[in-house]
Computed example of a mutant assay.
Amino acid sequence: MKITFLLLEAYAIDGTVRCTFTLADELSRRHDVEVVSVLRDRDKPVLPLSDRVRLRSLVDLRPGAAVPWPNTARAERLMPEPSAMVHPEERSFNKYSAWTDDRLTRFLRRPHTDVLVTTRAGLNLAAARLAPRRVVVVGQEHLQLGINEPGILAEIEEWYPRLDALTCLTDADRAAYEELLPAGALPVRTIPNGLPARVHPRSRQENRVVVAAGRVVWIKGYDLLIDAFAKVVEKRPEWSLRIYGDGPRREELRRRATRLGLYNNVLMMEPTDDMEGELAKASVLAVSSRAESFGMTIIEGFACGLPVVAFDCPCGPREIVTDGRDGLLVPPEDPDAFAEALLRVIDDVERRRDMAMHAAAAASRFDIAVVAASWERMLEELRARPRRDTGR
């Protein structure tokens, strides 16, 4: 079976890219797999990709890259023009152009594959409109439905029934799509992201460190986490919080920590290419998000033997964390409750070690081999049964 994944930016550092590469790598052990990137802005992808997986791009944005004749003048004319294919409310609309419209249209009408997996709303919608019926088209959602603007929601309701299937990362998000889309419009499946197949370092539960990781943006709730940790430090001043990641709120959060007198306890760490090693140096993982599409950091923390304290936000943590067994869930956006939960895990060493053991065991549910097997069963079923009339 030939499987093609379509990404907007395969050369970027991005959670969707990382999880797609991990899945493509595993599937390439048994299938012919390629990744097509709409955009290319560097010579090699930043994130690792198996040599078994072919990678190509539709639009080359590298300095000095030239569009070959006979499309040179056409590309120069269309590149500055906005996209007419992608809805303006798509979260990355400004990365598309009339030239990406041209290249996407050409690719989607003749993708030369058995299965096409598209990985964001703009690409899902384009494939629903343009891909030929002979190709099994699966839309993959990495963001929760509720984060979309009204214009995108209207297009999803209209065009997603033309897909052969849709996958979501959580049952909660699957239910939201099933409620939005006409009854029986298309199969909607829950398939989580997977952990790469490798040995993960394990926390020894000896360091007095709480760790958090992710892009430093409002939705991640690091302001709430710092407020909560101020209360932890009042009782356990020997503990520290390390927040790994980059983003527009780094300096604001650093100032917040200083204002609260936490300059020795809260460290804004630079991004690292060995996040698993840094996780293993901690004893607790804090997930303070106001909303999560899934919670890949939780799974990575589990694999390193970290119990998790997380806000019970929509949609991911409650489907990964078993409250009281491998972590604690607390009411959303409640720093006092978060601080109390952190202190419960910090103070009860025996319970923390027990949670760490269960966390490491829970990570096996998300092993990439298990996730890839779910994908294979779905794709084989879609290819074997009589094709549904999608309108394509």
Results as ranks from 00 to 15, higher is better:
213 A>N: 11
188 V>K: 04
36 V>N: 08
33 V>E: 12
378 M>C: 01
61 L>A: 02
32 D>T: 14
316 G>F: 09
359 A>C: 10
225 L>A: 14
165 A>V: 11
231 K>F: 00
300 E>P: 07
44 K>E: 11
253 L>C: 02
345 V>G: 06
59 V>G: 03
145 L>I: 02
392 R>W: 05
57 S>T: 08
104 L>I: 03
19 C>P: 00
343 L>P: 00
5 F>D: 06
34 E>D: 13
221 G>T: 05
135 V>L: 06
326 D>K: 14
292 E>N: 06
100 T>A: 07
129 R>S: 03
236 R>A: 13
43 D>P: 00
73 A>N: 06
183 A>S: 12
8 L>T: 15
358 H>Y: 15
161 P>H: 09
136 V>A: 12
110 R>H: 14
365 R>M: 03
9 E>F: 03
289 S>I: 02
86 V>K: 06
368 I>S: 04
152 I>P: 01
181 L>F: 10
86 V>P: 03
237 P>M: 07
368 I>D: 06
243 I>E: 02
245 G>K: 02
217 V>H: 13
264 N>R: 15
209 V>R: 15
296 M>H: 08
52 R>Y: 02
70 P>S: 08
237 P>T: 03
300 E>Y: 09
318 R>Q: 10
220 K>N: 14
102 D>I: 00
72 T>F: 15
392 R>Y: 04
8 L>S: 10
78 L>T: 05
56 R>I: 04
355 M>F: 14
284 V>S: 00
32 D>W: 01
249 R>C: 01
363 A>D: 09
117 V>Q: 13
250 R>A: 12
261 G>D: 07
304 C>S: 14
179 E>Y: 01
352 R>G: 09
160 Y>V: 09
217 V>R: 12
126 A>H: 08
37 S>N: 12
127 A>I: 07
305 G>W: 05
375 W>G: 06
376 E>V: 15
301 G>D: 02
57 S>D: 08
390 T>D: 03
53 V>W: 11
294 F>S: 09
274 D>Q: 09
358 H>D: 14
29 R>P: 00
230 A>Q: 14
35 V>G: 05
252 E>L: 12
256 R>T: 09
145 L>W: 05
356 A>G: 15
92 S>Y: 10
248 P>Y: 08
65 A>L: 11
272 T>K: 13
261 G>K: 07
387 R>G: 07
21 F>Q: 09
261 G>S: 11
84 A>T: 12
89 E>N: 09
336 D>W: 02
379 L>E: 01
309 V>Y: 00
154 A>S: 14
58 L>P: 04
234 E>P: 01
203 S>L: 07
149 E>I: 00
271 P>N: 08
376 E>T: 12
